[in-house]
Structure formats: C-alpha cells, structure tokens
Design a protein around this nucleic acid. Sequence first.
DNA 1: CTGGGGAAGGGGCCC
DNA 2: AGGGCCCCTTCCCCA
Length: 288
Amino acid sequence: MPRSFLVRAHSSHRAPNYRQLETQREVNGARSACRGLVVPVLLPDKSASPTPADPPRPWERTSVIAHISLPLPRHEEAQGAPGPDPLQVGPVHLWASRAPSVPLKDSLNQLNLPPLLVLPTRWPPIPGPAGDPAADGRLGAARAPGGFQCVHCGKPYHTPAGLARHRELHCQLRARRCFSCKHCDKEYGSLGALKMHLRTHALPCPCAVCGKAFSRPWLLQGHMRTHTGEKPYTCSHCSRAFADRSNLRAHLQTHSDTKKYQCKNCAKTFSRTSLLARHQESSCCPDP
DNA sequence: CTGGGGAAGGGGCCC
DNA sequence: AGGGCCCCTTCCCCA
C-alpha cells in the first residue's frame, strides 16, 4: 500500500493528545467530558462570629451559597446550564443560587482560593514526578514553570484564563465533529474538512513519473522533488539542503543546544516529539 | 537504543 | 468553494 494512502483512524501506539477526551464519550455522549462542572461553595457568614461556647459549624454558618463551574461551550450554556447568568471570574464561572448578603466576589476573595480551584473533575489527571508540586492534575491543567499547560495538547499558557479559553476550543471541536467519512470512521467539524479528507481516498493527483497518487497538488509537488532531486531549502549552519521545509526545520533542531522536547521523568531533552515519545515508550516511562 | 533524514498527511489560514 | 501555502505531526528507514 502506498504510504500516501495511510489514513490512520486510530493508532494504538501514537494516540493524539486528546485521546483521553475521547474516552469520556462513551459515558454520556460528547457532552459528558465538556460539561461545566458545578460545585456548591459554602461561604462564611461574617456576621455570625463563633464564640468559645459555640464552635464554628461551617455547614450552618453560611450566608451565601455559590456555584462554581468550569466554562461551558456556548451551545451547552444555552442548553443545560442552571441558574441565572454566570458571573465570570477568571477561568471559572460563579453565580449565587440565592441573593448574597455580601458581594459575591468579596466573599470568594476571602476564601483565598488558588488560581485554579481545587475541584473534583472528570478531566484526566496529569502524571508527574512524584512529589513535584508543579504537577497538577486538576482541571486538566498542568502548572508548568512558565505558566499553565494544556494536558490534552501541551500548549503552554501564561494564565489560567488563557488555558480555560483554549480548553473551550477542545470542547467545541469535539462537539462540532459531525461530518463522517463514508470510507473510514473519521469525523470532521466542517464539510470542507471532510471534502479535503475524501481526497485522501480519491487521490486525484497522480505522479506522471511513477504513477503514485496524492491527495493534494502540493503533495505531488513535494513528491516530484524526489524524482528531480531539487532541494530548495538549505540549512544556514551546515549548507545541507532539503526538499521539504519541515524537514529543514527538524534538522535545524540538531544544531540547537537546547532541545525543545523534554522527558518529564528523566529531564532528558530531544529535538523532536517523536524521539521523546519513543524514549518514553521504550526505556524511561514504560506503560504499566 | 538513539539520532536524524525522507516522505507524506492533516488542519488552518488566506486569497 | 476551492486552491495554494504554511506549519505541525507522523511514520519509516538507516547509520
């Protein structure tokens, strides 16, 4: 089979980062993993200060009951979010279930909550080095040295709010995947994306030299360079030439002292994600 | 086992 | 809507 036809619906070894999202689908459908998480919060009533004879009983001494939820995709907010319009505070939504006696924001500030609230969550935890306070499996987020990292795709963000916005994209992408390929079980979020995928089955761009067929003209262009030997992309460090710009980019990493991809277990760095993945699968972090 | 090159696929953006 | 381009990713192969 020509490699150009390798349309992998599922890979048991090199799953996409959001595979963990998919594992939630069977439970309650596509919405289950993305639903806002609603948790009641009991806020202390300042007016009812405890006395020695009357020890504090937090479950009684509350004047405000707030709810905290993870951000919902807009279409889900319209369908299923309870209560009045949420008041957005940073990466979470807050609203009072009954009239607060003190401003809600002030009360929440008194709670001294961490940047990302400590909540139970359906999102998968992030495995990290034992005892590493930077590793945080809550809310599908990791506390990275420079900020916050998406557990599903690894994108770094400086603020929790930025990470929350990004995570909404994951939810929306999943919810919008409704165009299915009739030749395989792939799904796409738009008709255009599906049409583009269908080209990988039709392969309308055949090579005039070897007959190999490609899904897109520019793929054929790149392939033709394997026949002509043309290598228009030259490394500025060693003058080595490449037919593909991405391959030049990967090559440039070999000249760099600081490799981009680091193993979380042994801190060893690699020039490519594939090398890091292979390292983790083989020796350093074998699957249990 | 590891590092790296070659080839190809997919998504997003712009025109 | 479709094509071109860019970027990222993945897989295979070899030293």
